[in-house]
Design a protein around this nucleic acid. Sequence first.
RNA 1: GUGGUCGUAGCUCAGUCGGUAGAGCGCCGGGAUGUGGCCCCGGAGGUCGCGGGUUCGAGCCCCGUCGGUCACCCCA
Length: 425
Amino acid sequence: MASDNQAPRAPSGTHDVLAPESDRWIALLGIFGSLAQRYGFSMVHTPMFEDVRVFHRGIGEGSDVVGKEMYEFTDRGGRNLALRPEGTASIVRAFVQHRPAAPWRAWYATPSFRYERPQAGRFRQHHQVGVEVLGSADADVDVEVITLAQRFFEGLGLTRFTLNINSMGDEHCRPSYTQSLRDYLETKASELCKEHQASHENNPLRVLDCKRPECFAVIEGAPSLAEALCDSCRTHFERVKDGLRKAGIVFEINDRLVRGFDYYTRTTFEFSSSALEGAQNAIGGGGRYDGLVELLGGPPTSGIGFGIGIERVLLACDAENVFDIAPEVPEAFVVDVTGGERARDIVERLRDAGIFVERAYDNKSMKSQLKSADRSGARMALLVGEEEAESESITIRMLREEREQVTISLDELFARATTTGSLLP
RNA sequence: GUGGUCGUAGCUCAGUCGGUAGAGCGCCGGGAUGUGGCCCCGGAGGUCGCGGGUUCGAGCCCCGUCGGUCACCCCA
């Protein structure tokens, strides 16, 4: 459509959100925000760009997101910055900078940027809501965080989604497991898929997640992460599972769930929608990251959180036919065929009284203005013609129900608006 | 980064063996001497993504390019 000197479009992989879709965004953010508040989270805003080191150190150089998907740039002062590719690292950086009292519970809603090829449910700018808890290693926090996500999805009306959980081990048991996995993969290197023949040494855990058939056979025989967990990780994981069961949350243990960021320890989890046709069906995910605060220069501090993809959640809602938001419609629509000055004053006074009112502009014909009134969805039209102008009155015509139209004085109209908030007696 | 697929009015699309463009919806106006929705009539709006080639002639064929879309990879 667009060519060299034609109108610009939104950049590839980005999109504009207009009504009525934007109405759903407002509603979704409202639901998430009030739920998070009920769970004791307060909202945090952090910059959309950070020193690149926040992400390099936090997410890990070896990850795809940092290695090949970040929007990095140098500003006019020569600083190396990057648009945020995910939410957690920025929040942790803010924690280290401000040292709020722990445990600190923060929720956020923010765009994220990744330079990937767009496809269904995947964008270069997407949006996430999420929470992070910094400063507690208690497994009950894991349970709460996962429960919050679960309740959010339920609150939207989603039913066709699943929760996978896993434990990645900690600094005591993970290194030795990683080594034994690396040793194992070394002996099977030639049988791995092309991608992992090259990369299994730096990031052996990622191979567990590979969906290619070649790797699959190798993975079958690989040492089990679950069996390699140390006692404290095992206990932690048991308590998480127990808490989830008590909360009535259905989950699946998936010991091949290895998420894409290097910072995860112990609990990891992912919510997937089974209603989404495409390959991009992960609607939310997160986990514990007990070493991340230190990596970003803070004191040893435990942490856990998740991110939920707004666009994907809305796609899932569409697929399940839930969360259909009816947009707000005006109570009244002022039709003024005497030039518009009266409409100008009437809408202002009614709006001051707290009523949602629209009007027509450009001195259109009555037919045209009523057409606009109808399309606006307004419950009633307030008509001002020569007669009403003469007598300082207005004619109320109901647009959605059979009722005889009535003419009342403007004084009466404004009195109703300010005393009862309704334009009808 | 790799591959498939598509690119005609604001939107959804039609366009038959190549002969310089149509529908529905939407929008604007009228049919009612002040009154929307249904119906009827009329109107505006497109250099057929862009560039090149073949041809007497290309929306239709060929090449390139840009963009959309889907998939791989990875993730939300």
